[in-house]
Amino acid sequence: MIPVKQIVAIIGAGNMGGAMAAHLLAQGWTVQVCDIDPSKVAALEKKGALALATPAQAAIDSVAFVVCVVDAAQTAEVLFGDHGLARMLQPGHTVLLCPTIAPQEVENFATRLAAIGVFTVDAPMSGGPARARDGSMSLMVACAPAVYEAQTTLLQAVSAKVFRISDRPGDGARTKLVNNLLAGINLVGAAEVLALAERLGLDAGRTLDVIEQSSGQSWIGSDRLRRAIAGDYAPRAHITLLEKDTRLALEAAKAAGFEGPLGARASQVFAEAHQAGLAELDDAAIFKYLANR
């Protein structure tokens, strides 16, 4: 059991941040949480979390300050806004950046934090809320070796799959974008073939049974399409998240002078589904979009 004197502040208590907070609370950590949605904070208070009205109210003796919001704009506000963490951060403090954002944004944030003596751990997450809640999600970590050593206890507490990417903040984001581009390609592909199976008169569930035990299997295909077959589109990860992530991955690819045959088309499908009115649904709704074309 982790001593309760260890405090961690989590800014952003949505699907992933909230699940991470619940997991740490169950291990005995003292967890402070802040979110623009009071109901999310209230739910974690019932589990023992301490509520923050603003990021700047985080305890100065926190082990680390975990930013778990959606995008770069929200990250900038959490860090450097009027009520942001930078107002109370001291030299030697550490910020974990967990959102999926552009590598250049991570580098920019790390540079700004370094200017006030604050360390950055580039630590995007993967695996979804259920895995964040049970501690089996993946973390792709890039930071200086001494910072990694100092934060090993926390990193291992939140994830059983900590991947040490490099010493350079930004490389975690690069790895996450590569992963999520493949996730997007796999999801669009799985939804396409299942929509085709139905059009051919096949039973979608039985077809997926075969795929899961054959060469076409993918984790995201099984996870999302089981829900899609059941008509369950309640958002765990909105369509807009993979729309954003695949777009960022393509921007990183362009900057590196690389162009592949599949990523751009998969990204376009997410954008089309958004425009078709599915933005607030789970990304399993890619199946619904393709099946209704």
Rank of each mutant, 00 (worst) to 15 (best):
1 M>S: 14
3 P>L: 11
5 K>P: 00
10 I>R: 02
13 A>I: 02
16 M>Q: 11
23 H>P: 02
23 H>N: 15
25 L>Q: 05
28 G>F: 10
30 T>P: 04
37 D>A: 13
44 L>A: 02
46 K>M: 13
47 K>F: 03
48 G>P: 07
50 L>M: 14
50 L>H: 13
52 L>D: 05
52 L>K: 03
52 L>T: 05
62 S>Y: 07
63 V>C: 09
66 V>A: 04
69 V>N: 02
71 D>R: 06
73 A>R: 13
75 T>Y: 03
77 E>F: 00
84 G>I: 10
85 L>W: 06
92 G>W: 04
94 T>K: 03
98 C>E: 11
101 I>K: 02
101 I>C: 03
104 Q>F: 04
109 F>Q: 12
110 A>V: 07
113 L>N: 03
115 A>M: 12
118 V>C: 06
121 V>K: 00
122 D>N: 06
123 A>K: 01
123 A>P: 01
127 G>Y: 08
128 G>Q: 12
134 D>M: 07
136 S>Y: 05
136 S>H: 09
140 M>E: 03
142 A>R: 05
147 V>N: 05
150 A>S: 15
151 Q>E: 14
153 T>H: 11
153 T>G: 04
157 A>H: 03
157 A>L: 07
159 S>I: 03
161 K>P: 00
165 I>A: 02
168 R>Y: 09
170 G>R: 02
171 D>K: 02
173 A>E: 09
173 A>F: 03
183 A>H: 00
183 A>E: 08
184 G>M: 07
186 N>Y: 10
188 V>K: 02
189 G>N: 07
190 A>H: 07
195 A>Y: 02
195 A>D: 01
196 L>D: 08
198 E>C: 09
198 E>W: 02
201 G>L: 12
202 L>H: 09
202 L>E: 10
203 D>E: 15
204 A>I: 11
206 R>L: 13
206 R>I: 14
207 T>E: 04
207 T>C: 14
209 D>G: 05
215 S>I: 12
217 Q>V: 12
217 Q>S: 11
219 W>L: 11
220 I>Y: 05
220 I>C: 01
221 G>V: 03
223 D>Q: 14
225 L>T: 03
226 R>W: 04
226 R>H: 15
227 R>Y: 04
227 R>T: 00
231 G>W: 13
231 G>P: 08
235 P>M: 08
235 P>R: 06
235 P>H: 10
240 T>L: 11
246 T>V: 12
247 R>A: 14
250 L>V: 09
252 A>H: 05
260 G>N: 10
261 P>F: 04
262 L>V: 13
263 G>L: 06
271 A>N: 08
273 A>P: 07
275 Q>M: 09
277 G>D: 13
278 L>N: 03
281 L>S: 07
284 A>G: 14
286 I>V: 15
290 L>H: 04
290 L>E: 06
293 R>S: 10
